Deep mutational scan, measured.
Amino acid sequence: ITIHVNGVTYHFDNPEEAEKFAQKMAKTYQLKMEIHNGEFHME
């Protein structure tokens, strides 16, 4: 699972971890999250 946050790329093997991380980042930084081709993009 690949997550892009403001141009920084994070890779996770565990989908649950990826989702937790994505939600935490979105909440902490008030980010808008989109999913493209199974990759999370946040800005």
Rank of each mutant, 00 (worst) to 15 (best):
T9C: 15
H36P: 02
E39W: 07
P15L: 12
E17H: 07
E39T: 03
H41P: 02
F21G: 00
G7Q: 08
M25Y: 02
E17I: 09
N14T: 07
F21I: 01
K20T: 08
N6E: 12
H4R: 07
E39Y: 06
H41D: 03
H36W: 08
L31G: 12
V5E: 01
V8F: 12
D13M: 09
F40W: 14
L31K: 07
Y10K: 04
T9R: 12
F40S: 05
K27N: 05
H4K: 06
M25V: 05
D13S: 11
P15D: 06
M33E: 04
Y10D: 00
T28M: 14
F40C: 14
E43P: 04
F40Y: 11
M33R: 00
N6P: 01
K24V: 12
K20Q: 08
M25A: 02
Q23W: 10
E17R: 08
E43H: 13
H4T: 06
K24N: 08
Q23R: 09
K27W: 08
E17W: 10
M42W: 07
E39D: 06
M42I: 06
P15C: 15
A22Y: 06
P15H: 08
I35T: 04
E43S: 10
I1C: 14
T28K: 15
T2L: 11
L31Y: 07
F40H: 05
V5K: 00
T2G: 04
I35A: 03
T28S: 05
A26Q: 06
K32C: 15
G7H: 12
H4F: 07
E19P: 00
D13V: 09
F21L: 01
F12K: 00
F21H: 01
I1H: 04
H41S: 04
I35M: 05
T28W: 15
M42T: 03
I35S: 03
L31C: 15
N6V: 13
L31Q: 10
K32P: 11
K20P: 01
H41R: 04
M25I: 09
T28F: 15
V5H: 02
D13T: 11
Q30F: 09
V8Y: 12
Y29C: 15
E17M: 07
A18C: 13
N14Y: 06
T2E: 05
A22S: 04
T2V: 09
V8S: 09
F12D: 00
Y10E: 01
I35R: 01
A22R: 06
T28P: 00
G7K: 09
T28A: 12
A18F: 07
T9G: 11
Y10A: 02
A22W: 06
I35G: 03
N6Q: 11
H11E: 07
K24M: 12
P15T: 11
F12P: 00
Q30P: 15
M42Y: 07
T9F: 08
K32T: 14
H11K: 06
M42F: 09
E16R: 08
I1L: 07
H11I: 08
T9V: 12
A26L: 11
I1R: 04
Y29P: 15
Y29W: 02
F40M: 10
